[in-house]
Design a protein around this nucleic acid. Sequence first.
DNA 1: GCCTATACTTTGCATTGCAAGGTAGGAGGG
DNA 2: CCCTCCTACCTTGCAATGCAAAGTATAGGC
Lengths: 113, 113
Amino acid sequence: MAKIPSQLLKGTLEGALLLIIARGETYGYAVQTTLAELGFGTVPEGTIYPLLLKMQKQGLIAAERHASKTGPDRKYYHLTAAGQTAIASFVPRWQQLAQAMARLVEAKDETSQ
Amino acid sequence: MAKIPSQLLKGTLEGALLLIIARGETYGYAVQTTLAELGFGTVPEGTIYPLLLKMQKQGLIAAERHASKTGPDRKYYHLTAAGQTAIASFVPRWQQLAQAMARLVEAKDETSQ
DNA sequence: GCCTATACTTTGCATTGCAAGGTAGGAGGG
DNA sequence: CCCTCCTACCTTGCAATGCAAAGTATAGGC
């Protein structure tokens, strides 16, 4: 799976993390695995953890530490009401962008051959 | 048409401009109109012109100035071979990102009600 | 004891979108 | 003739974000 360039990810990643956490409580390390499984490629720790902390400070997600039997403690995040609101505003913007890009890409496919 | 947040546009815009110029020679001011028509919202001049200059320096596009009957000179851009290559590498990355996001958004639609 | 996988944090840099301001031509109204 | 608007381009400086790099720490296998 090819790596998605940093600049393409910009801004999208916050929405992606919100949507992942919305599916059920998770922790940073697991989020990284989930992103890879979804096709986002390997998003480095130096991206994920600072972003989670920022979102926590903004009140979009909240955290609780729990012990793990297979390693160090995990910091489990879950969505707050503000996080729900953020998702509700993110999704349509993303869809708008995706549609606009789709128009360009499809138009290109037609003309390029 | 709602405005797409800056952070979502990051990186995407360069690809969008390449695809627009690939459809046929255009100039900055017209690109702005085209973006709006495609659904990208109003992308400010302070975004478009610096980006076009950067892409020109990188050799992805080339420019020629021509007079206009209805106003100041226009700087027409057209794609170079390097620009074609850039499109060829951009499009699959974008599609990868769009697919990964689609999985998350669709999953959300199912669970949310 | 050492190495690997797991798990989180912090610092500093590079890139990019954009607000704000500047320059300038042509057309129309006052 | 001046003023305003639309057209058309450029530059400066700031803010946001991804990420490399380095550090800390637990658990298990060799």
